[in-house]
Nucleic acid binder design. Structure first.
Lengths: 198, 198, 198, 198
DNA sequence: AATGAATGAGAGTTCATTCAT
DNA sequence: TATGAATGAACTCTCATTCAT
């Protein structure tokens, strides 16, 4: 439940090992998938003994969940940071989308991991999208307050927007391993703004 | 009907067993997930011996793939049938969405299975969405031809629409096990049509 | 125990099926080996149902044993026939060797089967070589009686001769799938006759 | 010493377990045969868990092959050692035969294993006899050089000699579980020397 | 803190054989 | 006579986890 679980005290060396395992696990899970990846895969690639893994994480599922939570935070904070300077709802959306896709492009493994959460821990999966949605909802409510966009049910639109970015990311970044082409991004954003504007 | 030939000849009894296994597998995979479900789970629930399974399917993955292909067909043909009578693009979309959600509601397990395909066989996963997308694209091109909607890149919009339905289905049908509420459906459709109209 | 086991009465059609299975089994066992070959391999290649097999043979081992016994007979009778006309011990040996190697060359599968007997049924294995040895012994005793060769322990020499033909057959026929080269055959025979002559 | 590296590091305890498994496997394969022996047979007799087996050997075939290679080495080095002191070709042959038979007598299981190699891995089988043959050939060439024996094709004679020892070993040591009787050994050696001498 | 040996339940799959039709 | 559906025990192998050092 706590986001920094594990042991109460860790020496510097211990902390380093722990982080190393997390980063190796990110790659292994991303490439092989949660179910096809084994603890041995992780420990071998990390060049530690199997037992070492269990000094830092209580189970395979635990390290996976920690990765997901980490990703959720880093991803959302990156977006938050990026749209800080935006002066309008439209601009913030545009920046948000771009950031999302470039994040996905450079964290392909993490993106792949999210898709697997549903099979590992449904609760966590819902948590992940709930948190993500709440960011969207806040933005939408503000824009509605300022009468920048139509008065839709914000949760509905939030899920629409998440669906759109997820599927465009899947189609271009994940399948083709390319950046989402500009004309695609422009058409998608045009579609969305037409859909939202008064 | 089946895309994979399997055995050369199947008696009536054999065909029945095979269908029974398929239907039990649908439930088991849907509930437990592909990786957590075992052949024993399927054969026990189907009340046949483990060996019987392998008289009809060469592997666990094979039966899973057949389920996905079956679903792809039945789902798309149901939609196709439903929107036959629609007199405008708008009406066909509205009917299409409704049909999608009611299909998901009554085939919860199949829906859950699709989400897992990506982890089992990525090729099949792409095949599934490619086929689905091509249906959307055809409808969009027609509507553009008739100048009912704006001239967007149709593939982009197709993936947007698939993303939207997927996420609304996930949020209300899959998580809450309810029908998508009317106000959600209406807002989503309004959003989409505003987005598309000239 | 009886060499014609199976059913008491067989129609013509039944007898044909039975022979067909035997001949297919010879190939399958020869190529894949007893343990790697399955009844399905045999019935599929013979184009009959699995159940049909058990109408004619009580078990996998039974058909294998019948093949071995058949081979033992046909092989020995071929040799016997061939050396009938020989006018001296030396000539009969020379003909015997040639016949052995050409038999092996044209019945590669049967030869391969013999090598497996030891793992399937040790008793049968000993029976096979006992019978073979007794032919050699008879010939040797005769030659000793006629003072054509030295007075060795005939069983010992019989096993020496069987070992020699077995290993030469293995080396040239089985491994290279060629006829035993003439110079090999000549050297082997020279070695043997020097060894035996007074 | 081992030709296959297996794990990167093995503690003393690990090495002990590994050797124990090898020695138990030798007995199990020797008694039941490769195909009739299961990993469970080995681990139960070794009193370790099934999983332990796979900590040391990647597969059933791998441990079998290692046994064969070990045997090949130990057997040949024992012979080599034994005939070191021989002052003539004749003496070395006599000692070699005796050593062969006493090796077989005290390593009945290993002997039985060799007979099975052909069914498990034909390449390994040929390797085994090639190596063995090359020892014989070297001895024969030397003797020919010294004009101690006739000028035969050495490979042919090597296979003859291997066949002879194999079959005598089978007949007396393997089947009767006795030492090869002296009169058999003497007759065989007489036969061979008559065959070889000038 | 780190190791790696040991575990054992459970996985997917094979196959000789039986039996009702 | 021929069929092929059904069986279930047995197989090889995997892997998350524990524990003594």
């Amino acid at each position: 439940m706590s986001e920094m679980s594990a042991a109460s005290t860790l020496t510097k060396k211990g902390e380093k090992t722990r982080q190393h395992l997390l980063s190796v696990a990110e790659e292994v899970f991303g490439v092989k998938g949660y179910f096809n990846a084994s603890i041995v895969d992780i420990t071998q690639q990390a060049k530690v003994a199997q037992g070492t893994f269990y000094n830092y994480f209580p189970s395979k599922q635990a390290i996976f969940e920690e990765l997901v939570r980490n990703m959720s935070h880093s991803f959302r904070s990156e977006i938050r940071e990026a749209i800080k300077s935006a002066s309008s709802f439209e601009e913030s959306q545009r920046i948000g989308f771009r950031t999302f896709f470039s994040y996905v492009k450079s964290h392909r493994n993490l993106y792949s991991i999210v898709q697997q959460v549903v099979l590992v821990d449904e609760e966590l999966y819902r948590w992940y999208y709930d948190r993500l949605a709440s960011g969207y909802i806040k933005g939408l409510e503000e824009a509605i307050g300022k009468e920048e966009i139509q008065k839709y049910d914000t949760e509905t639109i939030a899920y629409c927007l998440m669906g759109i970015s997820q599927f465009l990311g899947m189609r271009w970044v994940y399948w083709e391993d390319e950046h989402v082409p500009d004309h695609v991004l422009e058409d998608a954003i045009a579609f969305i703004f037409n859909g939202l504007k008064k």
